[in-house]
Design a protein around this nucleic acid. Structure first.
Lengths: 227, 227
DNA sequence: TTGAAGCCCTGTGTATACATAGAAAGCTAA
DNA sequence: TTAGCTTTCTATGTATACACAGGGCTTCAA
């Protein structure tokens, strides 16, 4: 048994919201969810409180706690915050980085940017590399407040993964964009790192929105994109 | 009686942390605080959870929940986040503002920048003006995520007010810095607004740190500045 | 048939009792 | 005297019972 029931409830509910098992608009009653997750109302309420603070739930007065929506407008707002946070993170990382660490990552991105990435394992390797790059940036910035804001941002961003659709061409493009960022950080060029981040986010957003626009398939409604 | 005991407990504890009644390092036990505030442990725990999410408390494993510290290093980190968020806010406000609103505010800052501001009522009027300016920016940015991040940031910033010391010369200087920002927003010049914000924050931080450094008075220890 | 009023019912908010783990203190033995 | 073990105590974590409010449904009257 895991140590804390509230932690367990939080993780289950968070994951279910992030992978769209609990779709936007779903109302979460306390007794109902406590029963379903096999915990009592007290730790469940703590979990719901944390999810509300995260912005994954909202207290729709009269209806109770509902899973927040993710319209295209929300995605654009999210990217406006992301731009502010990640550009600053890139700047600080460039100033405070361990050069060795980012030179090693650069070499890996060089390979990725030239690789075909058409098969599943190639994609997995790329996602893993991006994850390690993010961790390297997190460690390098040495700023607890910025780090906290980034973590909260990423919770929301991970809800967009459902849109990603693993387009190999976009991934190669993304790899070459990351290559500029990681090189700039390795070189300690803060402004270059910030601007490269700006470009990467601009292209990522354009791509995500083009998917949302073009998506006229059966999942369209369940995605709640196209606001 | 106020509707919710948890809300009451949250507000009391938050205010006490922000005005340093509860100094950094103070350990908050559940039964102890519940007794003191006249609520039961259940709503108190909810309040403590929110304060922890805000970053005002930290779960120092073994010691319980303690009020977080605010060293000079923390202040510098806070301003690195502030720079990212407020520059972006200034940019977005410049793009989406209602020109009338910011032109009116500009006129008020013009007066403030030339006023002497030596008496208490003058200072109060200035703080009120800055507050209304912040509200105008909040309304103009039209971004719930950035707004949420700004609100969380301001919770921490308000802990620094104890340092402010109401220096009239600094306030006049601050007014003229704000004047550039508000003019840029009124003109719809996003980059100018961002850069003017950058400068304002740079000078504010320098000033705050100079106070912390130079403060050799009796309050020095209780401030926990000079990390 | 429709509107209004009252009652019930469901859900949240709060208090409290119980479980349990970790720390501190005391006791015993070397 | 000190090290190690046990015991106790205090704190948090959890469950549950009770209070109360808001909404919906039913019922009665016009």
């Amino acid at each position: 048994m895991a140590k804390k029931a509230s932690e367990k409830a939080y993780e289950i509910l968070r994951d279910e919201i992030l992978d769209w098992t609990l779709a936007p608009g779903t109302v979460l009653g306390e007794v109902e969810q406590a029963l379903r997750l096999g915990v009592s109302r007290t730790p469940l309420r703590e979990a719901l409180g944390r999810l509300t603070a995260d912005g994954l739930l909202t207290n729709d007065l009269g209806r109770g706690l509902v899973v927040t929506a993710l319209s295209t407008k929300n995605v654009e707002e999210l990217f406006e915050l992301r731009q502010a946070l990640e550009q600053q993170a890139a700047r600080l990382a460039a100033k405070r980085r361990d050069p060795e660490l980012f030179l090693a990552l650069r070499d890996e991105f060089v390979e990725m940017a030239s690789a075909r990435m058409l098969d599943e394992s190639g994609r997995q390797a790329y996602y893993d590399l991006v994850r390690r790059f993010d961790e390297a940036v997190d460690q390098s910035i040495r700023n607890q407040y910025l780090l906290g804001a980034l973590r909260n941002l990423r919770i929301h961003l991970s809800r967009l993964r459902r849109l990603a659709q693993d387009n190999p061409f976009r991934l190669v493009e993304s790899a070459s964009e990351h290559l500029v960022i990681v090189s700039a950080i390795a070189d300690g060029d803060a402004e270059l790192a910030a601007h490269a981040t700006h470009i990467h986010l601009y292209k990522s957003l354009r791509y995500a929105l083009s998917l949302a626009q073009g998506d006229e398939g059966p999942q369209r409604d369940s995605m709640q994109i196209v606001g």
